Amino acid sequence: MTDLMDHQVKENDGGDGDGRRGLPRLHRPLAYCAAAMGLLAATGVVGMAVDERTLLGEGVWLKPFKFAVSFGLYALTLAWMIGRTRAWRRTLRFLGTVTVVGFIAPEISIITFQAVRGVRSHFNVSTTLDDLLVKAMGGAAYLGWGLTLVVGVLLMFQRRVDRPMAWAIPLGVFISLAGMSVGFLMTSPTPAQAEALDGGGSPGIVGAHTVGAPDGGPGMPLTGWATGAGDLRVAHFVGLHALQLVPLVAIGLGLLATRVPVLRDAAVRTALVVVAALSHAGFAALLLWHARRGLAPLDPDRALVAALAALVVAVGVCVTAILLLGARRGRRACAV
């Protein structure tokens, strides 16, 4: 297996000098994409300041701004992850480029185009053009999901000295995939839309992110998340950004290891990373369950509070046990 991995490292290095020196390098197309998303986010800020048009109660440029920030973080994180690879480098770099061309660029372009027109981008099937654009975004989203899955699988087979990060990256990817999948739930017709479709009607909007009320009701500042009904976007957001948060936990634990002796054990940090990833996934699942019941994000009921409390207790018990066992193992090693 080691010989096979060494062969893959040499074959997939692609003549990249950074690969031979072992230095991580950002995947260029994804890095350039992240920079472009930064420019688009800045454009969105300017647009919100000078363009007074609104859509569903919020400025038409808010959605391009939010998606530019989200796609920018996604692209930059993926660029960093691919830059750390040693095996399957050519394949991963190709997949990264396809992600930019086939997923990020088409979807953000359509969202921005529809914002310029002042009409909805998602769920909007009111005209032939709008319907085609929705289908194009759907195809790009499915492609992006599949590409992220393949990248996550290939990242599992990388050799790294840092065991916590070796777990953090694929766990973050797979939880992010689950978060992406929440977006597909939003494309299902609401009961009112389904009734109209069954009756032979042609509703201009098919799908919604709000549960229990029409889209466009009262929402939180900036995010726009519903304050009077369930909102699937909350779980979608939390799950999606595990891609950044779980590796950040591994990085944070590595920095703390210089001051906290028990964290110098890679096995302890790895176990804590796994607990952090599972707790993140559990939190996102609870948010999805809450939204599906038509309850607003800032309106927790007793069931959600009890479930969150159980999650916190379980995480606390696991973290305490990991730290105690790690400290005991450290004392035994010192005694030997």
Rank of each mutant, 00 (worst) to 15 (best):
M165G: 05
A166Y: 09
W167M: 14
W167C: 13
W167G: 02
W167T: 08
A168M: 02
I169S: 05
I169H: 03
I169A: 04
I169V: 15
P170L: 06
L171G: 04
G172M: 13
S176G: 15
S181C: 12
G183F: 10
F184P: 04
L185N: 08
L185W: 04
L185K: 11
M186C: 01
M186G: 06
T187Q: 14
S188M: 13
P189K: 08
P189G: 05
T190E: 01
P191T: 00
A192Q: 10
Q193K: 05
A194L: 12
E195V: 02
A196S: 09
A196P: 00
L197M: 12
D198H: 11
G199V: 13
G199E: 14
G200D: 06
G201F: 02
G201S: 07
I205K: 14
G207M: 11
G207T: 07
T210E: 13
T210Q: 12
T210C: 14
V211S: 06
G212Y: 03
G212D: 06
D215M: 09
G216E: 11
P218W: 10
M220P: 03
L222I: 15
L222K: 10
G224C: 09
G224Q: 09
G224F: 10
W225G: 09
W225R: 00
G230S: 10
D231P: 04
D231V: 03
L232E: 01
R233L: 02
R233P: 01
R233T: 06
R233H: 08
R233W: 07
V234I: 06
A235V: 03
F237P: 01
G239F: 04
G239K: 02
G239H: 00
H241Y: 01
A242Y: 00
L245C: 04
P247N: 08
L248P: 08
L248Y: 09
A250I: 12
A250W: 05
A250N: 11
L255D: 02
L256C: 09
A257C: 07
A257D: 07
V260S: 00
V262N: 05
L263D: 03
R264P: 06
D265G: 04
D265S: 13
D265E: 09
A266F: 01
A266S: 11
A266I: 09
A266W: 05
A267S: 14
A267H: 08
A267N: 12
T270G: 05
L272H: 00
V274E: 01
V274P: 04
A276L: 02
A276G: 03
H280W: 15
A281C: 12
F283G: 12
A284I: 11
A284S: 13
L286V: 11
L288E: 03
L288H: 01
W289P: 00
A291S: 15
P297N: 09
L298E: 15
P300E: 14
D301P: 14
R302D: 15
